[in-house]
Design a protein around this nucleic acid. Structure first.
Lengths: 174, 174
DNA sequence: ACCTGAACACCGTTCAAGT
DNA sequence: ACCTGAACACCGTTCAAGT
């Protein structure tokens, strides 16, 4: 007798995202996810290959959100950097997970697009990819170190970020 | 009847480092470490509080190695960046673990020292910390993205690194 | 002192049996 | 079709008992 599904893939991923944000990736157990969507753990395997695939899906959904946010931000490099940082502060655990998980190329491409456009405007087409890598490396490195607590040697971290935004602009313009 | 220890803390950490490099942090199980040092898993708890503490010790030992390497490199920013990258390529798993684990402040300070000196030489004392954060954010971000496979949108990754080294120098000099 | 087997709680995953 | 309990393998950790 056919039975309608009780937990959609979208619900499972959403549950995963909530758990990751409150308990970190280690807290995302199949049982915790199952409980949240009102089902038993084995049922999750109808929608998800295994825990790792669910983690990748959570990371992918997070990157999609970030991409949408960046897309609506425009062409300004400094603005993009600040939106990026705001997102990381809102979802620190998901942000760190995102950086640890390998993404499909098309997802990467979409997320890179706004930055690539901003860089093309500044350095031209030929250097745009190198420049975008320079910028994205700086901003993700900064945020990962900030979130990992690596910036504890004094000084003002907000100030250091704005210093970086300025230096970034300077370096691409010369 | 007192018995001499069969596995020193140093041996345990070394075993942990080898396992991490070949199987990643997930491969570091207490049983795998125990087997490597010729003991049963429960004995490890005489020297190590728990698995997490062992992971932190492995990360700390790795950062100590990196710090020594940087210290013997000198004051040149570009040289420091290249040594940093060479180290990450030699120990990709340990490098990623290092970035994920919170470090004691004194370990951070020692590792930051060479970079701080290089930056002081270029931008002066007042901006040295901001500049060092700019530089270290870029280089660790670049390496983490490179190791995580985030640079797969074409172009030459080695070239992008050298582009970054140049832009970094430019940005701090103006 | 240090080492061990046994035990416990917990987790990911599979699968036959239910509806 | 989907859901479940039961089972299996594996892991971290504790602890009483051995030497």
């Amino acid at each position: 007798m056919p039975t309608p599904p009780r937990a959609s893939l979208a619900q499972i991923i959403d549950a995963g995202r909530e758990i990751v944000e409150v308990s970190g990736p280690a807290g995302l157990t199949m049982q915790a996810v199952a409980e949240r969507v009102g089902v038993r753990a084995p049922s999750l395997y109808k929608k998800v290959a295994d825990r790792d695939a669910l983690l990748r899906a959570v990371a992918g959904a997070t990157l999609d959100d970030l991409s949408a946010r960046l897309e609506s931000t425009g062409d300004d490099l400094a603005a993009l950097a600040r939106v990026y940082r705001a997102f990381a502060h809102e979802h620190p655990e998901a942000f760190r997970l995102m950086s640890a998980v390998p993404m499909p190329v098309e997802v990467l491409r979409r997320s890179a697009d706004p930055l690539l456009r901003a860089c093309t405007r500044i350095v031209g087409e030929a250097d745009a990819l190198d420049a975008a890598r320079f910028a994205v490396a700086w901003v993700t490195g900064f945020l990962q170190m900030e979130l990992a607590g690596a910036f504890r040697l004094g000084g003002d971290v907000d100030g250091a970020f704005e210093y970086g935004v300025r230096r970034l602009a300077v370096s691409l313009r010369s």
